[in-house]
């Protein structure tokens, strides 16, 4: 019996040893395929213009996770030609560099949302979330009328700080103004609204997302988040503008 056979023969008789060996053997594929993604430069280069989520958008992301929207919607356009044709440029890994956790998903009961930002109006999103059947009669998406309730912002500062500690580049002024910014993004006519553009860039949408600037609702947050999807860096759009003719 050659030594390796002997090893296997003996291993078969030590069940915990066999379990450990199976785990080791099965993880080789994962280690070889996944681990290098953290070191290979091409996959981890964060675009210079990628901005972190503004506080209201971050609050919307938390609600998106709470409501399980990711169970039906992916946020990753695959690098396949027909996906590019339907949704736009494929998703880059680096686009979700500041997302903890990322929400790529693979289940598509509804359409991919990675490029949905700015595609529809705020009013449409509000109508659609309150009851999708009001605008898309055949939709099977659930209703979310409770999103019209007030947004709880008590944990938001802590959430932004946590992300900061995980490496998301919120600067001091962004960290200090979470409470002001979350309100100001839904109040375009307030004095504080200018601060959003100053801190997060002028491309950030500052609007009364749910139509009512007086009350800050979960709807404001979710719609602000949806409108930001695919708009936080221009990098992926270069793929198509620089493509060979």
């Amino acid at each position: 019996m050659i030594p390796i056979q002997k090893l296997h023969y003996n291993l078969e008789k030590v069940s915990m040893g066999l379990v450990a060996a199976i785990i080791f053997a099965a993880s080789i594929g994962g280690i070889v395929e996944i681990a290098p993604l953290f070191t290979i430069k091409e996959t981890v280069e964060v675009p210079e213009d990628l901005r972190p989520l503004a506080p209201l958008e971050l609050a919307g992301r938390q609600i998106y996770i709470r409501e399980g929207c990711y169970a039906c919607h992916s946020q990753m356009i695959r690098s396949l030609s027909d996906e590019i044709d339907r949704y736009g440029p494929y998703s880059l890994a680096a686009e979700s560099a500041y997302d903890h956790p990322m929400l790529w998903g693979s289940k598509r009961t509804g359409p991919d949302l990675a490029r949905v930002g700015r595609k529809y109006s705020d009013a449409w999103h509000v109508k659609h979330l309150i009851n999708p059947r009001h605008v898309v009669p055949t939709s099977i998406m659930p209703v979310y009328p409770w999103l019209m309730e007030e947004l709880d912002t008590s944990l938001l500062s802590a959430q932004v700080s946590t992300l900061h500690r995980l490496g998301v580049p919120y600067d001091t002024s962004q960290l200090e103004n979470v409470k002001t910014d979350v309100l100001a993004q839904s109040q375009p006519d307030s004095d504080e609204a200018e601060g959003i553009a100053k801190r997060y860039g002028k491309d950030v949408a500052v609007r009364a997302f749910d139509g009512n600037p007086e009350k800050l609702t979960e709807m404001d947050a979710v719609v602000a988040y949806l409108q930001s999807l695919g708009t936080r860096t221009k990098e992926p759009y270069k793929i198509l503008s620089e493509k060979p003719k």
């Binding site: 690098s79 396949l80 030609s81 027909d82 590019i84 044709d85 494929y90 198509l240 493509k243 060979p244």
Partner: peptide, 13 residues
């Protein structure tokens, strides 16, 4: 590359 294939497929479409 996977990406290159996707782009050339898209260009063909």
């Amino acid at each position: 590359t996977q990406e290159g294939e996707a782009i050339s497929g898209f260009v063909a479409i």
